[in-house]
């Protein structure tokens, strides 16, 4: 392989003149996090509501949420990204559509990216919340009901507190996914970490250095998320139960 290694490139001035390539990439990480975190907030709130509603006894609500989940989880993320960015503004009323198209960069890419990634992730969160709720013994709901609690009270005080503990580990994976998936936003022009690594490679031809740096930055970021979520799992662990996933059984028998 004939390749000129040059790790020093990371400390040379970037093509946009704003600083070194390393800072150029770190700013990219900033955009990655800004996109991922906003999408994560959206995904958690919508996903929690949709997942919970799918377990309630109201049939039409369940069907509506089912349709929502199946639409957004069965279309590839990159296609959804294009739909939000190129197609949606054309379908909206003229004023709103052109307002979307005229948003100055990077917001013109950032807003559709957050919406797209947030909705896409929300259906995955919804499925996990639903599975978590359904993994609880049926008797828990009965016990709440038998005490005279209303359905919302039973959810609020009995079902959801345990379901949240059960879905924390799979939610960690979703959190990591949302950070990694934010890289797809480069296809609609958002200069987040992957977008910047690619642009650095195009200007300098130092493809290995550019993507090695991006890889390390992603790994370190996600490691922080994993450790944070582990800490959270430990914090909410219920005394006397061996693990969050086993407690449903223990409580039942």
């Amino acid at each position: 392989m004939n390749y000129n290694w040059n790790w020093g490139i990371l400390f040379q001035t970037a093509s946009d003149g704003s600083g070194t390539y390393l800072t150029y990439l770190v700013v990219g990480l900033g955009w990655t996090l800004a996109t991922a975190l906003a999408a994560w907030v959206l995904a958690l709130s919508v996903g929690a509501v949709v997942g919970t509603l799918r377990t309630t006894p109201t049939p039409w609500m369940g069907r509506f949420c089912y349709a929502y989940v199946e639409i957004f989880r069965n279309v590839p993320l990159i296609v959804q990204m294009f739909l939000w960015f190129f197609v949606l503004p054309e379908l909206l009323p003229e004023a709103l559509g052109s307002a979307m198209k005229q948003m100055p960069p990077p917001w013109g890419s950032y807003v559709p990216a957050v919406l797209c990634l947030g909705i896409y992730t929300s259906v995955r969160v919804a499925e996990q919340v639903r599975a978590g709720i359904q993994s609880l013994p049926r008797g828990q709901r009965m016990a709440g009901t038998a005490l005279g609690l209303t359905l919302p009270q039973t959810y609020r005080h009995v079902i959801l507190p345990m379901a949240v503990r059960i879905v924390l580990p799979p939610l960690t994976s979703e959190f990591l996914n949302v950070i990694k998936n934010s890289s797809v936003a480069l296809t609609i022009g958002l200069m987040e970490l992957t977008g910047r690594a690619r642009s650095m490679q195009e200007f300098t031809f130092q493809v290995f250095e550019a993507f090695a740096a991006a890889t390390v930055i992603y790994l370190l970021t996600n490691l922080v998320v994993v450790l944070g979520m582990r800490y959270l799992e430990r914090r909410v662990r219920v005394p006397g139960l061996i693990s969050a996933s086993g407690d449903a059984q223990m409580a039942g028998h």
Partner: peptide, 13 residues
């Protein structure tokens, strides 16, 4: 009406 279940159904958390 109080009800007691076979598998207790206390709220574990």
């Amino acid at each position: 009406i109080g009800m007691v279940f076979q598998s207790f159904e206390l709220f574990p958390h």
